[in-house]
């Protein structure tokens, strides 16, 4: 009985929560994938997927069935173990990060003290899926894609790290829930407009918000920074030898990483689950709805960038990362630290 109440019961509860969270997350990712295609189609005056289900709502599930029922092919000269491990690494790491994401007040699987560092650490490992896949395929295009991706993701991680440091300086805690709490009062309150969306970090740290958004695009290999899978040069980059279920897992990992970056932007800069106006009609809507709405908004911006902006050249990408974002974010860390030290603003938890 003692063992049961000490180990088994908590483990079962956590398992149940995680399963529920995963199922909801996967359905959400299916619809985010559909939304991506729909937005892209709308910008190009097409209809997008509209055959499976009403307005094409079940398209992603049809795609899932298609991929799973196809025969997986492994190239003869591929390194089999690593070849099959790569998509697994990509998808497992991308989904593992969601363990610390708070979707509403107290709605989080693991409310750990160093949540943001955990997210940063795990998302810095996501590049392994790409590199391993590209190398194990034993193909020129795949390998070039993997090399590009490795350099790109490592470069933009640096500026993402500094952006996170800037936010942490203002918050005084690495706990993602505390980061949201810290946005309950901020610049808006100082300007005389308390309890509004002006309190969130996007306004007080606006340059960092922009840097983070663009770096998130580069980190997740989204257009205009999708050079690892640039179809006009590398066919499909690191995924060129993949098909059926392994390919689907790469796609799933990619979209899970994109969703994570949208969640992270929401938590760091857009006040997480906080309502835009903290008074009556807005506070009736539960926090999770606000959170999802903000994630959807950020993803809409991701999708619009994909539809609007032509692909970068590789040297331009590197120049942007190292020569513009890195000095800018480093300077902002120093400036924010000075301002906080001199004025005594900022929170402590």
């Amino acid at each position: 009985m003692d063992i049961f109440s000490l180990y088994v019961w908590p483990a079962l509860i956590i398992l149940g929560q995680s399963l529920l969270f995963l199922v909801v997350l996967l359905v959400l990712i299916a619809y985010i994938l559909l939304a991506d295609r729909k937005v892209w189609a709308a910008v190009q005056l097409r209809r997008g997927p509209n055959v499976v289900g009403p307005w094409g709502l079940f398209q992603s599930f049809a795609d899932l069935l298609k991929f799973v029922l196809k025969e997986p092919t492994i190239p003869a000269s591929a390194n089999k173990g690593v070849f099959l491990l790569a998509p697994l690494v990509a998808v497992v790491l991308a989904l593992a990060t969601f363990a610390v994401v708070p979707v509403a007040d107290g709605w989080v699987i693991a409310n750990i003290n160093i949540g943001i560092l955990y997210v940063f650490a795990i998302s810095s490992l996501e590049v392994y899926g790409v590199i391993m896949g590209g190398w194990a395929s034993n193909s020129k295009y795949a390998f070039l894609g993997a090399l590009r991706s490795a350099a790109q993701m490592v470069s933009y991680e640096v500026s993402i790290g500094f952006v996170i440091v800037t936010v942490l300086l203002c918050v005084g805690s690495l706990n993602l829930t505390n980061i949201v709490y810290a946005q309950q009062d901020g610049l808006g309150t100082m300007l005389g407009l308390p309890n509004t969306f002006l309190d969130w970090h996007w306004l007080s740290l606006f340059p960092m918000f922009v840097v983070f958004f663009i770096s998130a695009l580069a980190e997740t290999n989204r257009p205009p920074f999708d050079l690892p899978e640039a179809e006009s040069e590398l066919v499909a980059g690191f995924m060129v030898e993949y098909g059926s279920t392994p390919y689907m897992m790469f796609m799933l990992g990619e979209y899970a990483a994109i969703t994570l970056m949208c969640c992270l932007t929401t938590i760091l800069f857009l006040g997480g689950w906080l309502p835009p106006f903290n008074f009556v009609p807005f506070t009736w809507i539960p926090g999770v709805i606000w959170f999802l709405a903000k994630v959807a908004l950020v993803f809409f911006m991701f999708a619009m960038v994909k539809a609007f902006v032509p692909r970068y050249r590789y040297d331009q990408l590197m120049r942007l990362g190292w020569k513009i974002f890195l000095p800018l974010s480093l300077a902002m860390v120093v400036v924010v630290a000075f301002v906080l030290q001199l004025t005594g603003w900022g929170n402590t938890f």
């Binding site: 560092l117 650490a121 795990i122 810095s124 490992l125 590049v127 991680e157 790290g161």
Partner: peptide
């Protein structure tokens, strides 16, 4: 632990 992952594994 996490710095080990970020620095050694991630870079």
């Amino acid at each position: 632990a996490l710095i080990l992952i970020v620095v050694y594994v991630g870079a």
